[in-house]
Design a protein around this nucleic acid. Structure first.
Lengths: 146, 146
DNA sequence: GTCTTTGCAAATCATTTGCATGGAA
DNA sequence: TTCCATGCAAATGATTTGCAAAGAC
């Protein structure tokens, strides 16, 4: 499920976003990762792809992508740091272990009916939702009752 | 639906948390508010109640209450600031206008069945979830198509 | 060529922490 | 009395910003 540079360029152009190698590198890393990343994670990973990339540019890029709706901040925070992830085209949610912080994706989403109901009862024009489910993974459950 | 100081004291004692006037003031403001608040919001509001309260103490209090599960960080962030809200005893989700940021609570939650399904298919011990729904409120829709 | 994006370094701003004092049980 | 919680001020660490140079279209 690798995404080519051309595809990324096209996706950005479609949203009226100019392509730069920094943007492609950052977006590429977001595509590759299934877990949300901090700005610094992104910087380190994307820096390997693009020598000329600075941390402040990573911040500028994720801010811009958030505004365009391409990226979203995760509800989680690691320490004081924000976590960023692609706004999934294929709708998807995460299941997060509250002990080891392992994150696995959940398959289906039961909320589309719920959204239409809400739209009807509130008059809001629903644009999306964020759902995170928390629990203890099997490994952590076994390791200790805590 | 006002909460008396005695009730708050009792609630804290029940969780093994010592009562101080700072804690009661902060918790009281969280009780009163239906929207998530920043640490500074809390500081300003609670300071009116309790002269002797400092911002760093607000941080220490909300951190502690988060660990005890009394308070949670909202998935939203206002600027770079974290938002805090009471962990609802009555399970509840928010509907957030992406334009004016008005927040209204949603009545029912369709996820309990979903949680059992997840528990079965992943082996996780599910402890809870966070759901936020985004949309444009009727007023903002009328104001402009943007 | 023109306007936008970036790198760098300095500036900000939220959050955290050390230490001496005040307060709860 | 005995710790734990707090205030204050200083430290930290993430994020932002100004400005000149490099890059996209």
């Amino acid at each position: 499920m690798d995404v080519t540079e051309a595809t990324l360029r096209q996706a950005l152009a479609g949203k009226g976003i100019k392509s730069t190698k920094q943007r492609l590198a950052v977006l590429g890393e977001l595509e590759k990762s299934d877990a949300p990343l901090t700005a610094e994670d992104l910087f380190m990973k994307a820096h390997a792809q693009c020598e000329t990339l600075s941390l402040s540019t990573v911040y500028r890029i994720v801010d811009m992508l958030c505004e365009k709706g391409v990226v979203m901040r995760s509800g989680l925070m690691e320490g004081g740091r924000s976590l960023f992830e692609l706004t999934p085209v294929v709708h998807r949610h995460n299941l997060i272990c509250v002990r080891c912080h392992k994150i696995i994706p959940l398959e289906d989403c039961p909320l589309s009916q719920y959204e239409s109901d809400i739209a009807k009862s509130t008059g809001y024009n629903i644009s999306g939702h964020k759902l995170e489910v928390y629990g203890v993974c099997p490994k952590c459950s076994k390791d200790r009752g805590h």
